[in-house]
Amino acid sequence: MRTRGKGAPDAERPWDEIVPGLWMGGHHYRGPGGERMPAVANDEFDMVISLFRRDGHGPAPGVEHHYADLPDRPLLPDQLGEVCRLADLAVVAVRAGRRVLVRCHFGYNRSGLVVAHGLVTMGHPVEDAIALVRSRRSEWALHNRVFVDYLTTGLDVARLLSGLDA
């Protein structure tokens, strides 16, 4: 079984539905024989939000695609603002009955931050949103403690606090 840094294994599936219409995934997953497989989004989704980009991984032409280059480490205030903007886009689309995929490289942390913040926006308590992401995607989802701290603090407050260092 191939693992990434910090011991997190590749996901068992390319993406998982967290709540109806809102999916979370990565760019790779572990195939049935343990081999690393590319997770290619074609036209299964109406909107794809990518927090990591790799050529050949879609989405198909005509699929609404939003991209933000976010690291899997502490974020700057403008990056936290981008997380909020992307989560809001996902929430509006899901509420309109669209199928949305939020993905990052491994499908655990950056996508988990956007999805969990979207769930909070939809009315889920923070702890429930985190638990839902982990139970539907993987126990490895949101293993970046800084991202969990952002969620429990509130992204607006985290954005203000992270700006104090500048």
Results as ranks from 00 to 15, higher is better:
114 V>C: 02
126 V>P: 14
107 G>W: 00
164 L>R: 14
12 E>S: 10
57 H>N: 05
79 Q>K: 06
161 L>Q: 14
156 D>L: 09
25 G>R: 00
158 A>I: 04
48 V>A: 03
156 D>S: 11
153 T>Y: 03
6 K>C: 14
80 L>I: 14
106 F>C: 11
25 G>L: 04
90 A>W: 07
95 R>C: 08
121 T>G: 12
82 E>I: 06
14 P>Y: 01
55 D>E: 14
143 H>Y: 07
129 A>R: 10
61 P>D: 10
6 K>M: 15
10 D>K: 08
26 G>T: 04
35 E>C: 07
42 N>S: 07
22 L>M: 13
8 A>F: 13
100 V>E: 02
143 H>M: 07
5 G>Q: 06
109 N>Q: 01
133 V>C: 15
25 G>S: 02
19 V>G: 05
17 E>F: 06
135 S>C: 09
156 D>E: 14
19 V>K: 08
33 G>N: 06
64 E>R: 15
47 M>A: 03
50 S>P: 00
38 P>K: 01
122 M>T: 11
80 L>V: 09
113 L>H: 08
92 V>R: 15
96 A>Y: 05
56 G>Y: 05
88 D>F: 06
84 C>P: 00
106 F>K: 09
144 N>I: 01
84 C>L: 11
4 R>L: 15
94 V>I: 08
16 D>A: 14
160 L>E: 13
81 G>D: 11
121 T>R: 15
35 E>R: 08
35 E>P: 03
37 M>N: 05
84 C>W: 03
18 I>R: 00
101 L>C: 03
129 A>T: 10
9 P>H: 01
154 G>C: 13
73 R>T: 14
11 A>L: 00
127 E>L: 08
134 R>V: 04
76 L>W: 03
37 M>H: 02
85 R>P: 04
82 E>Q: 14
13 R>F: 03
133 V>E: 06
49 I>W: 02
155 L>F: 11
137 R>Q: 13
150 Y>N: 06
92 V>F: 10
72 D>A: 09
116 A>R: 00
149 D>H: 11
133 V>D: 05
166 A>S: 09
54 R>D: 12
158 A>K: 07
6 K>N: 15
71 P>E: 12
157 V>S: 14
71 P>Q: 11
65 H>D: 09
140 W>H: 14
123 G>R: 14
25 G>W: 00
51 L>N: 10
51 L>A: 11
118 G>T: 05
127 E>R: 09
164 L>K: 10
47 M>T: 12
71 P>K: 13
46 D>E: 06
8 A>Y: 08
31 G>Y: 10
72 D>I: 02
5 G>Y: 04
155 L>R: 08
141 A>I: 02
139 E>R: 08
55 D>Q: 10
31 G>T: 06
10 D>F: 15
150 Y>A: 02
133 V>T: 11
66 H>V: 07
18 I>P: 02
126 V>R: 13
94 V>D: 01
109 N>L: 00
126 V>T: 15
156 D>F: 01
76 L>M: 09
84 C>T: 09
80 L>M: 08
80 L>R: 04
66 H>A: 09
144 N>W: 01
75 L>F: 03
162 S>C: 02
35 E>G: 13
48 V>F: 04
68 A>Q: 08
27 H>F: 10
82 E>P: 05
30 R>N: 01
13 R>K: 11
41 A>V: 01
163 G>F: 04
62 G>E: 05
62 G>K: 10
64 E>F: 07
92 V>M: 13
2 R>N: 07
